[in-house]
Simulated scan of single mutants.
Amino acid sequence: MKQMKPLAALRRDASRWAAGAALAAAIALSLSGCGGDEARAETRADTREGAAPAVVGSEYVKVEAVSAGSAVAGSALPGRVAFRPQGLTAVGSPVTARVVSVDVRPGQSVSAGAPLLTLQSADAASAKASLAQARAQTALAQDALRRQNEMLDKGVGLEVERFQAQVALREASAELERAERAANLLGRGAGDRFVVRAPAAGVVLSVHANAGAVVAADGAALVEVGDPSRLWVVADVPESEAAAIRAGAAARIRLPGTGGDYAASVDGVGPLVDGDLRRLPLYLTFSGARPPALTPGALVEVRLDAVADAALSVPVAAVLIKGGSQRVVYVQRSDGRFEPRAVRTGASRGGRVSLLDGVRAGDKVVVEGALLLDSQAEQLL
């Protein structure tokens, strides 16, 4: 026979049950007095799978309207100072040659046409010889045509011979033009030597040649010259945020080393996405005064002004992860209940994450306590 509990034990159980019931009633009464836009005690959620519990206290759940605030507005983007494509010149050798002398050093300012290197090559001697021969042939052809014209004027010449002289002059002129282009490509110099000159003014950035070394005509740069007046800043912007950035948008550039803050504007966004980081290059130019002694390769911080048509964003804590990959937010309906919405997220920065679809501007989303509404959610974003 089953043994009955002593009377004292029954009384203790009854006392515990009465105390628990009184505490539950007190909590229900305190929650029923709450109200407002945040999730309140009387707020009920759907009872289907994955929905919120029937009652959630306002001190644990907070809602916020989805806004179109920019995820890149005011946030710091990593950037670097670089030469514009038109501001960097790489000078190489047009033929295989030996370096006779290096006439510049890194950091030296040069003007357009200044000598950079003196090279020696058999091709240079051949090109000069071809030029001299072409000039002589052209002179002979000109003289022959002049004599044919004089003979025709005296009535002793033939028209066919003058025509042949004209053709010979045209051929000699064409050969002279080709020889001059080849000689100009090599540059001036005596004998088998020629001088490589700076195509534009600037500062010598690097020298990759030593006296006595043999260089090839493979396009490798022997001397790099940069124009300090043609600089811009290249920043890295997330792929999901690049569509909201327009050319001409205002920005601020800060040099961490000096603490200076300078006005800039967006020149354009690069078309190629980095395969690993999923970022695009953002090019900016200085709008006003440039930083003194701006150095290419220096690291800077870029802050963009607000972008009106940026993606919708919410705090990171508003997004739940379900099933390992599904992103879900809870939206408050007009009747006060919550419903889950699958969303597609973009880049996150500054504690906020972009929502590419799934919600609209103005929807009220749970931004605090979202895990209390879904027992099946695994974690926050």
Score class of each variant (00 low, 15 high):
Ala26Pro: 05
Glu368Tyr: 09
Ala201Ser: 15
Val329Trp: 06
Gly33Met: 09
Pro238Gly: 06
Gly20Val: 09
Leu169Cys: 07
Leu304His: 00
Ala251Glu: 00
Thr285Asn: 07
Asp103Phe: 11
Asp274Glu: 10
Glu239Asn: 09
Ser93Phe: 01
Pro315Glu: 07
Ala141Arg: 05
Gly270Thr: 00
Val196Gly: 10
Leu77Cys: 00
Leu7Tyr: 11
Arg230Ile: 03
Phe83Ser: 03
Leu119Ala: 08
Ala22Pro: 08
Gln120Gly: 09
Asp276Cys: 01
Gln164Asp: 07
Leu7Arg: 14
Leu312Arg: 14
Arg290Ala: 04
Ser375Asp: 14
Val273Leu: 06
Ala134Asn: 06
Gly92His: 02
Thr345Pro: 08
Ala190Val: 15
Val365Lys: 05
Ser348Leu: 11
Glu224Cys: 03
Leu320Met: 13
Val273Lys: 05
Asp227Met: 02
Leu158Glu: 11
Asn149Val: 11
Gly33Lys: 11
Arg48Thr: 15
Arg178Ile: 13
Val100Asp: 11
Ser58Val: 12
Arg193Glu: 10
Gly202Lys: 01
Arg230Lys: 15
Ala221Trp: 03
Asn149Thr: 10
Ala293Val: 12
Gly212Lys: 05
Thr47Asp: 14
Ala97Cys: 07
Ala26Lys: 13
Ala250Glu: 04
Gln376His: 08
Gly362Asn: 04
Leu272Asp: 09
Glu42Thr: 13
Ser313Arg: 15
Ala361Gln: 15
Thr295Asn: 13
Gln379Asp: 14
Ser67Thr: 13
Val314Gly: 10
Ser265Met: 00
Ala39Pro: 11
Ala377Lys: 03
Leu23Gly: 11
Ala90Phe: 11
Asp218Ile: 02
Leu304Ser: 00
Glu42Asn: 10
Glu150Pro: 11
Ser15Ala: 15
Gly260Ala: 09
Glu378Leu: 11
Asp143Val: 06
Gln379Ser: 15
Ser111Leu: 12
Arg147Thr: 07
Val328Phe: 10
Glu177Ala: 15
Lys5Arg: 15
Pro199Cys: 03
Leu231Val: 03
Ala317Arg: 11
Arg170Ala: 13
Val319Thr: 08
Gly351Ala: 12
Ser265Cys: 01
Ala28Ser: 05
Val110Ile: 07
Arg337Trp: 09
Glu177Pro: 05
Pro238Met: 06
Asp143Trp: 05
Val319Phe: 07
Leu284Arg: 00
Ala18Phe: 13
Ala220Arg: 14
Gly69Asp: 15
Gly336Leu: 12
Ala132Asp: 13
Ser240Phe: 09
Ala209Tyr: 02
Ala8His: 13
Ala51Glu: 12
Gly351Ser: 10
Ser265Phe: 00
Ser240Met: 05
Ala25Ser: 15
Glu177Met: 09
Ser30Asp: 14
Ala122Lys: 11
Leu371Gln: 12
Arg170Pro: 01
Arg337Asn: 14
Ser121Cys: 04
Gly189Trp: 03
Leu371Gly: 12
Val353Trp: 10
Asp267Pro: 00
Tyr283Leu: 01
Val233Gln: 00
Val204Ser: 05
Val102Ile: 10
Phe163Leu: 09
Arg170Phe: 04
Asp374Ile: 06
Asn184Glu: 13
Val91Lys: 05
Ala293Cys: 03
Ala41Pro: 14
Val273Tyr: 02
Arg333Cys: 03
Leu145Lys: 07
